[in-house]
Write a protein that binds this DNA or RNA. Structure first.
Lengths: 232, 232
DNA sequence: TTATTAATTGTCGTTTTGACAATTAATAAT
DNA sequence: ATTATTAATTGTCAAAACGACAATTAATAA
């Protein structure tokens, strides 16, 4: 068999920044690393890319293994490839960010892996360059969410406008006028109002909405301007 | 030395989609592949990631080697990692797109490498998954250029609004109203009008402009809405 | 019955957008 | 020298979007 002679070979891994929303704050899912070095330290969930899978496949596999979830929103971020980033041997890692419904996860919790949710603003120090990855993922999430309706991925099927509002504020770390927000979200035409109300949060109660999946699919690539003062 | 035992190792490469603009059309720079398999077939310029460099470093090195240019606009696109994408042995490739001033390149042309500019819409079939990479790069270029002032990177230091206008139309494959375009570009405040005129294109002549580099740097991350009908 | 609270709908002046017209500065033709 | 021609530039205006802010509504608690 022919080979590209003399070229160096490296390990290739994937690391996933898993975002969730508990109704109040943005969270990320971390695991305790299971191998040396830095064993038992907090890290992103990751794994090596196997011989018969693409990095995308690997990310989905890792996510399935550690959360039990399939078909989650997963997006390739960038590659991390500094020569010395892994002290043992050279490993390039493809960073992904994932958006999941935090409640869905709790149901399917897999206790084999020590996974835990942390507030994005109060998380432990992570191994290697994982801290940088989280910072990058957060930026990318903001960027993407300002233009595309992806934050729904972190909410249950039925959700209220106030819930969505808090989520947007959390992701963007800013206050958004409640009244203008409702109007903007409504104008996207992506939501279908349900008859049912959520009475847990207030006396009046807030109507539940669900995604119009057809329109959502059609608008996944469209530019939407979902944030005020988008133009600096 | 400790190793991650039993994990497979792969080759890691970079491939660059180099965009240029000749005043009329969008072009890409291709090279004739110098090694087996598919030797002498047209391909993107690429190379393996060396042991002491990051993928970003490698992309810059390849670009320098094949075009003579340094400090060009280079952006990581995504990783291509299907197991069978390279028939010889498994190679993952990080795709980059680059924007260069086509005239700058001509000056520094390096004849050691058989590089040639092709119209983006009339290019030869490329090896492996390079055709897919070009398609992806084009999409990404459109996306990015709709929001951020990056197309200037393909123009000379002095350029006219009509030149910029044609470039925008080329990249987006659409017609843009000349009058609204000038106004929008002016309103960004990124351009400085020069006293000199370009008289080659018309009787009246068009004023030259140059970038306000300070404002350009400040707006590199800002959202600008540079395309009409951005919202679908 | 009233006070309270949060959700929802409404108002309005300003800015942006995009379709379209008029003017201007040069050269080429008469 | 005057006029026609051409492309660059500036201008107009109605519709839509934006964003600051107020009023109303539907429930519960006092």
């Amino acid at each position: 068999m022919i080979e590209y002679s003399g070229q160096p070979h490296y390990l290739v891994a994937v690391d996933c920044i898993v975002f969730g929303f508990d109704g109040e704050h943005l969270k990320i899912l971390l695991v305790k690393r299971g191998l040396e070095p830095e064993i038992n330290k907090w890290s992103l969930m990751g794994g090596f890319v196997g011989p018969d899978e693409s990095p995308d496949d690997a990310a989905n596999r890792v996510l399935k293994k550690m959360t039990g979830l399939e078909g989650v929103y997963l997006e390739q971020m960038q590659i991390y490839g500094e020569p010395k980033r892994d002290p043992i041997e050279r490993t390039l890692s493809v960073g992904y960010f994932a958006l999941i419904d935090i409640h869905k996860y709790e149901e399917q919790l897999n206790d084999d892996y020590e996974a835990e949710w942390f507030l994005i603003n109060d998380r432990p120090k992570l191994i290697f360059d994982h801290n940088e990855m989280v910072a990058d993922a957060r930026k990318k999430l903001r960027y993407k969410a300002a233009l595309h309706p992806i934050l729904f991925e972190m909410l249950p099927k039925k959700f209220t406008i106030p819930q969505l509002h808090i989520l947007f504020e959390e992701v963007n770390d800013t206050e958004i006028d409640t009244r203008n927000f409702s109007r903007k979200i409504s104008s996207t035409g992506l939501l279908i109002k349900l008859a049912e109300k959520d009475r847990s949060g207030s006396k009046k109660g807030a109507f539940y909405f669900k995604l119009d999946k057809k329109k959502y699919a059609a608008n996944a690539q469209a530019f939407l301007n979902l944030m005020p003062n988008l133009k600096v």
